[in-house]
């Protein structure tokens, strides 16, 4: 029975051995196995092909497969390391590992920087920050005048852009986060420590013994 199950899961594109993934991430082997249960659920919610499509990601986040959101798009793009439009199991586990409570803060800081560097220039630019603020306001049905938005962006830039060149580089971002640690709050998911309880894998064999 164990062998049949093993053969079955290894046919799924992008499947990687839990031992390999555990070795590269903050997860244990049993946590990776539990994540596979979550992954199976997410990757078969619309198209049953063992891959998480954008619509499936949106469905899981917003309970609606058609809800477009700038930040969800950015997260999806960062998870989709191969840039082939879908999230494979290995990509899912490696990316989620950034959000593990035991993962180094430096990894979380870097991930957040890449998340907010919308145009991959190596900087968070003023226009990008404004675009994100506007997207958040739209998502929240909040209406602020352009002057107020400009003031919020200006104030943040005056605090973060230490060399005053109009963009936030990695070093400035690190310093800004050190002064405002709450900015990384959403980079840690306490759930990941209890993932084996939330998604027991019910695997009767151990991959380690293979």
């Amino acid at each position: 029975m164990g062998c049949l199950f093993t053969k079955h899961i290894k046919q799924i594109p992008g499947y990687e051995e839990p031992t390999v993934l555990a070795g590269e991430t903050s997860f244990t082997v049993s946590e990776v196995e539990a994540l596979y249960e979550l992954f199976k659920k997410l990757s078969s919610s619309i198209i049953v092909d063992g891959l998480i499509h954008k619509e499936e990601f949106q469905l899981a986040l917003f309970k609606n497969s058609n809800t477009r959101n700038l930040f969800a798009d950015r997260i999806f793009d960062l998870f989709d390391v191969k840039r082939n439009g879908v999230i494979e199991f290995g990509e899912f586990v490696r990316s989620l590992s950034v959000f593990h409570p035991n993962t180094a803060i430096s990894e979380k800081i870097e991930f957040a920087f890449r998340l907010y560097d919308l145009r991959h220039t190596g900087f968070i630019e003023r226009e990008e920050l404004k675009e994100m603020v506007l997207a958040l306001l739209k998502e929240s049905d909040l209406c602020l005048s352009d002057d107020v938005v400009e003031t919020i962006v200006d104030k943040t830039f005056s605090e973060a852009d230490l060399n005053g060149d109009g963009k936030i580089d990695r070093e400035e971002w690190k310093e800004f986060v050190a002064r405002n640690p709450s900015l990384l709050k959403n980079m840690t998911l306490p759930y990941l420590k209890d993932i084996t309880i939330a998604f027991p894998s019910f695997v009767l064999y151990s991959e380690v013994e293979d």
Binding site: D73, I75, M132, I152, T156, A198
Partner: peptide, 25 residues
């Protein structure tokens, strides 16, 4: 007061960044 908000604090409240919802059954 909105003008005192840190733009990144504001952004970090986005539902699109709340991956905790992935774990909801």
């Amino acid at each position: 007061r909105p003008v005192m908000m840190n733009a990144f604090e504001l952004i970090s409240t986005s539902q699109g960044l709340n991956l905790g919802t992935l774990f909801e059954k």
